[in-house]
Design a protein around this nucleic acid. Structure first.
Lengths: 237, 237
DNA sequence: TGCGACACGTGAAGC
DNA sequence: TGCTTCACGTGTCGC
């Protein structure tokens, strides 16, 4: 239904757009991203990495724009009503609370308000570019991990991020439960074996070392021992 | 170091900004988000949900903006060079490949190019608002799952998304390994118990049922049995 | 067609 | 201070 979203990370621009020629300034950077498989794709989607970070376009010579209106954000395509201009430096009241290490988050992400315009974020172009690159890298890293996570999840069908997370949670809990049960089983087996050991001693087992504690059976619980799927059950002590 | 990012999802606007009065049109929506614990916060960060979706602001009467420049995107704060105007409808060549169910992703997310201007994205304001809300919802859902996932991960310190994912992967693999080992152990224990059972029979155990297969020991491997932590080991055919 | 899912660039905030 | 992380609104695409 809504699948096939496929984590369309990366590229996006830096492509031949036929009619629009992108200048490739910002020659520097190139950002060592290469340390990645580049096509993971056997998995499913996720761009992950595509080794195409550099070749960073600036706005096309035409289209002008002039980029007035300083730090407004993302002018939507709406013509009459737009959601713009509500986060030009005034944006988030946000938490602002302590949360020293973890927890502590207020109960409602702090309704402490304002503290408006704390940081004007006058970033110069170089910093802005680095920021873009860093963020891009971060997204790639995350997607990489999503891919890895999804690869160790059995029978995963949908492959969208939410499903992967959900499945990881489920699988984690299942595995936990399984370990618990298995450990119980092993513990039971140990007791069971101890019981049998005791019985062996009772019947004068001569070829084995005789260094057993004769009173250990006092601490043994009354158990019902099932062996190798046979139905014979016996009670001991 | 870079911790404490705390998934600053949610709210962002819809707050009293003192100097700027936000009109609260778009009265509708309200989007049933309530089905959430609202303060998960015992965990760490992540806004998750905050039950404050409605009260959607439009741009302030002042600030004008006029919102010309149709679908340019996010004019950065850069003054000279800006990264704007490279995705005004022309943006992504992207995959465009099939990937029917899963897999199939080309090898480099398809270098099939262009198919430019497929969808002009003339979204009306209502659709735009719905889009914003839907996206917000999606982010909340994802963060919710991140919280849940992090909550079942033991000894998690950093709590940023990458770490959570990473830890989930590690833990998942550990658990898998543990299950494997435990299962082996259980299998061994079964054999071991059978061996003891056989020994009991050999020494004429009269009070137990005698319906065992006398030849089963032929198929039993030579094992070393450790019982209840005692060091006495015995070898049995 | 509308909706779900992603990637993007960006402002903000904590170290 | 610079780096990292996050949330945001938006464009785009597939079903």
């Amino acid at each position: 239904m809504e699948d096939t979203g496929l984590f369309q990370e990366m590229d996006s621009f830096a492509f031949n757009f036929d009619d629009i020629s992108y200048l490739n300034t910002f020659s520097s950077a190139s950002t060592p991203e290469s340390t990645n498989s580049s096509h993971y794709n056997n998995n499913k989607r996720f761009h992950s990495q595509t080794t195409q970070i550099n070749s960073f376009p600036i706005e096309s010579p035409d289209q002008s724009v002039a980029s007035a209106t300083p730090p407004t954000k993302a002018s939507s395509s709406s013509k009459i009503i737009s959601f713009d201009n509500m986060n030009s430096r005034i944006k988030k009241p946000k938490t602002e609370s302590g949360y020293g290490e973890n927890l502590n988050f207020g109960s409602e992400y702090d309704k402490r308000e304002n503290k408006v315009a704390a940081a004007i974020t006058n970033r110069n172009p170089i910093q802005a570019r680095d920021h873009v690159i860093a963020e891009r890298k971060r997204r790639q890293k995350l997607n990489q991990k999503f891919i890895t996570l999804s690869s160790i999840l059995p029978g995963l069908k949908k492959m969208d991020k939410a499903t992967i997370l959900e499945d990881a949670i489920i699988h984690l809990n299942q595995l936990k439960e399984q370990v618990k049960n298995l450990e119980e089983q092993v513990a039971d087996k140990k007791v069971e074996s101890a019981v049998f050991m005791k019985r062996s001693i009772l019947f004068a087992d001569d070829d084995s070392s005789s260094s057993y504690d004769e009173n250990s059976d006092q601490s043994l619980p009354k158990i019902e021992a099932r062996v190798s799927g046979k139905t014979s059950s016996q009670h001991s002590e």
